[in-house]
Design a protein around this nucleic acid. Structure first.
Lengths: 258, 258
DNA sequence: CAAATAGTGTCTTTTAGACATTATTAA
DNA sequence: TTAATAATGTCTAAAAGACACTATTTG
C-alpha cells in the first residue's frame, strides 16, 4: 500500500479548496474499436474510482474539471461536458477517512465533527479522448491508474459505477445531436474508421449504407482525393472533418440519430 | 428591510448542513396560458433569487431539493429534475455576507477566512406545478416571494437569470421526450387546454390539427363522453390522462416533438 | 343568423429503415 | 483467382408539415 496522499493533502491544503463538493471526470478513451475509461486506485482499498479532485476557491467548477483532467491526461482543451451531480449520505461510506486513520498516518488530530468526514457532492463531467494521446495516465497521488473497458469494470468505490453509466448514457444522447470524432480520429480517416467509432460508442452495429448516407448529408466530413493502402483489398478513401461545418455543428447541433 | 434570517440561520445551524454547496429549485408555475417562476427576495437587496436552500448532512441532494420545494410551495411529490450545477468565484459577489455585516446583525464574530464567505456550488433542479395549487408561496425567511412571468424577470442575484434560462431549455428538451401535464391541468381537461399548455411551455404556436394528431397517437390521454359548456360556441370534449400509459411514458419516454 | 370556438382529413415532402451487389487490392 | 474489405442505390413505410373547411353553441 502506498502513501495515503489524499488524506495528507486534505489536511495540509484544505484551505485552498471548497468543502463538501468535488469534481469527478469520467474520461473515456477510444482505441481500436474499444471504449475504455480511465480509472485510478486510491491507497485505501482494492476498489477503483473515476478521476476526480477538489475545487479551488478561486476557480469555477469547469476550470477545476479542466485542471484535474489535465493533471491526469496531460491534455489541454478537452471538451468536458457536465452531465449531473451526485450526493447522498451513503457516498461517505467508502471514503476510507476516519479520525483514527488520519491520525495514524499524518499525526494530525481532527475532530470527528470536521467537514471532511461528511459526504461530498460530486459534480460530474465526461470527456472523450484518443487513448494513445494520453501520456501521464498516473496521478501523483494514486497507487495506480489504468484504462478499463466500459464493459468490464473492476469493483468501484462509492457510486462510481453508477456515475460511469450515467456518463455513458449522456454521451450516447449527446452524439445524436452534436458532432464528435475530431479528437478521436486521425486528421485523415476512412469511412470504416468513423463508422466503427460510432458503433463502439453506441454499442450497436449500424448499417453501413445508411450510416454513410446520413453522415455525408450533414456535410461535417469531406472526401479527399487520396486513399490509404492497408491490405490486399480495395483501398478506402480518406476523409477529413470540415472544420467550419463541425464548429457550427458544435454550436447549433447536428442531427445524427441512429 | 427585514431580518437577515439567512445569516442568522447560517451561524446558528451551519453544523447541520454541507458547506459550499446548496440546492436551487426553479419552480415553474402554469396559469392561464402563462409560464411563471416563483422567486423570492432576500433581505439584502432589491434583487431576487430562485428558491433555494442548504443540504443537510443526513439527506441526499434530491431529498434536499424536495424538502426545500415543500417549504416553499406546501406541495409534496413534485417532480424535480436536476438540470445542472453552477459554480464560480463570481457567484459570491452578490451574497451580501461580510464579516462586518454579520457582526452588526447577529453579534457573532466570524473570521473572514470562514467557508461561509467562499462561493457556493448550486445544484439546480426545476419543477412544474399548477400555480393555484401553491398555498404558502412565502418562505419564512424571505422578505417577499412572488410569481414572475419568465419573459419579464426582475433584476436577479448571482447567476440566477442564467439558471432560469438553463432550466427553461432543459424543460423544453424534456417535454419532447416525456409526458407532462398531469400536475398542471385539472383532472378532466379539453384539447384546447392541453394545446395551450404546450404552446406556452414551448413558447411558440403549434398547428392544432397536427398537435391533436400526435398527442392522440401517444395514447397518453383518452377522450371522455362529456363536454364542457363554456360559452356561446361549440362545447369541447373532456379528456383525461391514461394513468397507465402516462406512467409508462415517464419511465420509457414518449416522443412528442413539435 | 352571427359570432365564437371546436373539431377534423388530405396531400406532399422528408426521413428512416431494410436490403444485396459490384469494385478494388494484393497475395 | 481468390480472399478480404470498400463502396454504393433503391424501394417501402412512417412521420412531419402545410393547409381549410365544417360543426356546434347561444345571444
Amino acid at each position: 500500500m502506498t502513501i495515503p496522499a489524499d488524506a495528507t493533502r486534505f489536511v495540509e491544503y484544505s484551505d485552498q479548496f471548497l468543502k463538501n463538493v468535488a469534481v469527478d471526470n469520467v474520461i473515456f478513451g477510444y482505441h481500436e474499436k474499444e471504449l475504455k475509461v480511465l480509472l485510478q486506485q486510491p491507497y485505501t482499498l482494492d476498489k477503483w474510482t473515476v478521476t476526480g479532485g477538489y475545487i479551488k476557491k478561486t476557480e469555477s467548477i469547469e476550470q477545476a474539471a479542466s485542471r484535474i483532467a489535465f493533471d491526469r491526461t496531460g491534455l489541454k482543451d478537452l471538451y468536458l461536458k457536465q452531465f449531473g451531480s451526485f450526493g447522498n449520505p451513503q457516498r461517505v461510506i467508502d471514503k476510507g477517512f476516519t479520525p483514527q486513520r488520519i491520525k495514524e498516518i499524518t499525526g494530525f488530530e481532527i475532530p470527528s465533527t470536521s467537514w471532511i468526514f461528511d459526504y461530498f457532492v460530486s459534480v460530474s463531467f465526461y470527456t472523450l479522448t484518443e487513448f494513445s494521446k494520453v501520456e501521464s495516465t498516473k496521478g501523483e497521488l494514486e497507487a495506480d491508474s489504468k484504462w478499463w473497458p466500459v464493459s468490464e469494470l473492476p469493483p468501484m468505490m462509492f457510486d462510481h459505477e453508477h456515475i460511469i453509466n450515467e456518463a455513458l448514457s449522456a454521451l450516447r444522447v449527446h452524439i445524436a445531436h452534436f458532432p464528435i470524432g475530431y479528437e478521436l480520429l486521425p486528421e485523415k480517416f476512412t469511412l470504416p474508421e468513423i463508422h466503427s467509432l460510432y458503433e463502439t460508442i453506441l454499442g450497436k452495429s449500424l448499417d453501413d449504407r445508411n450510416f454513410t448516407k446520413k453522415l455525408l448529408l450533414t456535410k461535417i466530413v469531406s472526401k479527399l482525393d487520396e486513399t490509404r493502402k492497408i491490405g490486399r483489398h480495395r483501398s478506402p478513401f480518406l476523409y477529413q472533418f470540415d472544420k467550419e461545418k463541425y464548429e457550427e455543428g458544435l454550436k447549433s447541433g447536428v442531427a445524427l440519430v441512429f
